[in-house]
Amino acid sequence: MFGKSFQIFLFIIVSIIFTSCSDTSDGDGAYVYNPAWVTITVPSTNPYTLDKELVHLTGGAFISDGWSRCCSGSPSDTGVTVTWRNATTGASAQATQYVQYGSFLGTPYIKSHSWAADIPLVMGSNSISVTAYDPEYSDTANITVIREADTTPPYVIYIRPNDQSTGISVSPYISASFNENLNCDSVQADTLTVQDEFGVFATGTLSCSNQVLSFDLLQELAFDTLYTVTIKAGIKDLVDLNMSDDYQWSFTTSTPY
């Protein structure tokens, strides 16, 4: 019984300390209320210019000092709601939230709280606001995102397996990620091929989703063999700009045990 009471006492003391530390002084030694707040950390410039149909925003949000609903331990129980609104288009929605929890005397608390949102844009200037609110207070951050015409063809930014890698499984995950969403209607069955050093093509199924091409093998590759992956020119983005040159990389499978 004494141990439980002592834990409760310590928790109350630490809660008071946390609350005091999160307040700010008004200059006369008296503490004033420090409300919930929200930040936009990506993009880091305001205004921000890009040539895509979506902008990816991320940031942080924190709970009001006096609102204690949070911290049940559930990832969705952040205690604060984060929403975005594009005033230019009138579109709005909730942001996706992420939390990291700590624990003090068995009681969970939020160590960090971040949010993310992919927001559709129109050409020209887009006035976007992000609001965090709980039953006590709300706070809003604003950013202007300027969408310009897309003049950049799609290009590969990430591949699996890595180029010139060795010791790769004979059942590898083969994929290519692009800098932007693809027009998947421009993808044909032979847009991506996997060919061994003897000229034999691997059999598999090609799929396209957003920015990623994936090749699912129908049978294992050969051991200790060099394979070359080729993405043919002509694949398009959402405004029909096409990749003008083939893209290739290679890898070597592992030796049998």
Rank of each mutant, 00 (worst) to 15 (best):
W84H: 05
W84K: 01
A87T: 08
A87M: 08
T88P: 01
T88W: 11
A91W: 13
A91T: 15
A93T: 02
A93G: 07
Q94W: 02
A95E: 02
T96H: 00
Q97H: 02
Y98D: 01
Y98I: 02
V99T: 01
Q100K: 04
Y101V: 05
G102N: 13
G102V: 08
S103F: 15
S103H: 14
F104D: 10
F104Q: 11
F104M: 13
L105P: 03
L105V: 00
G106H: 12
G106E: 12
T107V: 06
T107D: 01
T107G: 01
T107H: 05
P108V: 00
P108M: 02
Y109G: 00
I110G: 05
I110N: 04
K111F: 06
S112C: 01
S112I: 00
S114F: 07
S114Q: 11
W115F: 11
W115P: 07
A116L: 03
A117D: 03
D118K: 02
D118V: 03
D118E: 15
P120Q: 08
P120M: 06
P120L: 06
V122M: 14
V122P: 15
V122T: 15
M123P: 09
M123A: 13
S125F: 08
S127A: 11
S127Y: 12
I128W: 02
S129V: 07
S129G: 12
V130L: 03
V130T: 07
T131P: 14
A132M: 06
A132I: 00
D134N: 15
D134G: 11
P135D: 12
E136V: 13
E136P: 05
E136I: 13
Y137D: 14
S138D: 15
D139F: 02
T140H: 02
A141H: 01
I143R: 10
I143C: 06
I143D: 05
I143Q: 10
T144P: 06
T144W: 03
V145E: 03
I146C: 07
I146T: 12
E148K: 14
D150N: 12
D150C: 05
T152Y: 08
P153D: 04
P154V: 00
P154R: 02
P154W: 00
Y155T: 00
Y155N: 00
V156F: 06
I157L: 00
Y158H: 09
I159N: 13
R160Q: 14
P161S: 11
P161H: 11
P161F: 09
P161W: 12
N162M: 15
N162H: 13
D163E: 11
Q164S: 09
T166R: 15
T166W: 10
G167P: 09
G167Q: 04
G167D: 01
I168M: 06
S169A: 10
S169L: 07
V170W: 11
S171M: 00
S171P: 00
P172N: 08
P172K: 10
P172W: 07
Y173K: 14
I174C: 11
I174H: 12
S175A: 14
A176T: 09
F178I: 04
F178H: 09
N179L: 04
N179P: 01
E180C: 05
N181S: 14
N181H: 12
N183G: 10
C184Q: 15
C184K: 14
S186P: 15
D190E: 12
D190F: 07
T193D: 05
T193W: 02
V194G: 03
E197L: 05
F198Q: 12
T203F: 09
T203G: 15
